[in-house]
Design a protein around this nucleic acid. Sequence first.
RNA 1: GUGUUUGUGGUGUAGCGGUUUCUGCACGCCCGGCUGUGAACCGGAUGGUACGGGUUCGACUCCCGUCAGACACCCCA
Length: 449
Amino acid sequence: MSGEKRIEPRTLKGFRDYLPEAMIPRERLIETARRVYRSYGFSPIDTPALEYLEILTGKGGEETDKQLYKFEDHGGRAVGLRFDLTVPFARFAAQHIAELGTPFKRYHIAAVWRGENTQRGRYREFMQCDFDTIGVRSSAADIETALVIHDLLRAIGFDDFTVRVNNRLVLAGLLERVGLAEQSTAVLRALDKLAKVGPEKVAAEMQAAAGASPQQAADVLKLAQLAGANADVLSALAPLVAGSEKGQEGVARLAELLAAVRAAGVAEERIRLDVSIARGLDYYTGTIFETFLDRLPTIGSVCSGGRYDNLAALYSNQELPGIGASLGLDRLLAAMEELGMLPKVATPAEIFIPYFVAERLHDYLRLAARLRAAGLRVEVYPEPKRLGQQLKYADRRGFRIALIAGEDEFAAGQCQIKDLSSGESRTTPLGGDAAGIVAALNDLLRPKT
RNA sequence: GUGUUUGUGGUGUAGCGGUUUCUGCACGCCCGGCUGUGAACCGGAUGGUACGGGUUCGACUCCCGUCAGACACCCCA
């Protein structure tokens, strides 16, 4: 080698490489999300990573603008990288809603970028998995959103999670009654921290940041701290918002949603009315959702969303009310890792065929092709080598099964099926349409899946 | 963005102001022992002081900066 200085290989702060071990569960999660979204009729869309800066700025306050990756492109245009999928969707809807028609249901799974400070589970490039229904005010869309969240978590493999649901109208009604409607943003921001910092600090922040009186803060907290079974909270809520049209509508919508979700077969404990959740976002106006893992509540909400009155107000005169939610892919992966839900495999295939006898390449390729045609994922080792080395390779990558065939097997018209985790091995006929092999393989693979 | 803290082969660690390629351990990777059965064992090979500056006769070790990570705050569309 020359004495030239080598460039140090490194990644930017907040950006990561994904090795197969991390990428395989990641892709699996994305596939699951896609499958569930599609099962409800949400259609896939995509938008450019880069947008005109004016599309992106001023949508979430100064803080967001500071986090925006922005620069001038080669044509001198001011551009920025999208920091979420909602703003591009608003632009997209304003531009295309005429040809799409309403209601319109889309999902969008893509990377977004934020130049914020990094933390565990928070990076500058990360993936969002959004789904939204726009052009609809009916509670049916809110209900469907709750069902999608529920099915999604189930499909990913969680049995113990809680979808917390609330309605901004309830909070708005209360704030009207206690005279804090004007300062709702600051009040809700404070309230959103209830679970994290406790009622005293929330009351203090309401007084400091929103100018609330101690009595006003206490009133808000009284409502937010209602707890218990959904039906109990609902009935306790009614008198607290009495006289506020908004508040009453909110309570009615919550009642409707909870009843419908139960009717659709969701277990009582999976969905809970929680008056304390507010979400920090200004633009939510109705139903709001947060989803927590019962075994790992500290990780925060893994799927959040809510109803908004007008998605594309900034870009269009047409009113587009809607509701949607977003799965926090990276946060969820971090949680699953911590809960030991991610298998440590470095291969997406389950079946390994050692390239064992050099002259038999054609036979190995034919065998692999037949198994693939039957829907199995199979790798043939790319060079003829000692069998022991090949099995070692297969073991380290996490293959479940090796299909071993050497001269003896070929002569007898058989092959060995070896379970790599137990070491057990059985013999199967090699000929025919591979149905016997496939059956034997599926038999081995199924109980563990 | 602020504060605290950390940075030694691919990974995880231990040591030291006095070696010209730092020394050590564990794991990994590669080769062989063993072209036909891996996750055991044996031998060998590979590979490092994050980057830049300063103090010093001498720096991996001390100091400063940069970059990166962790934690807390802030913020969270």
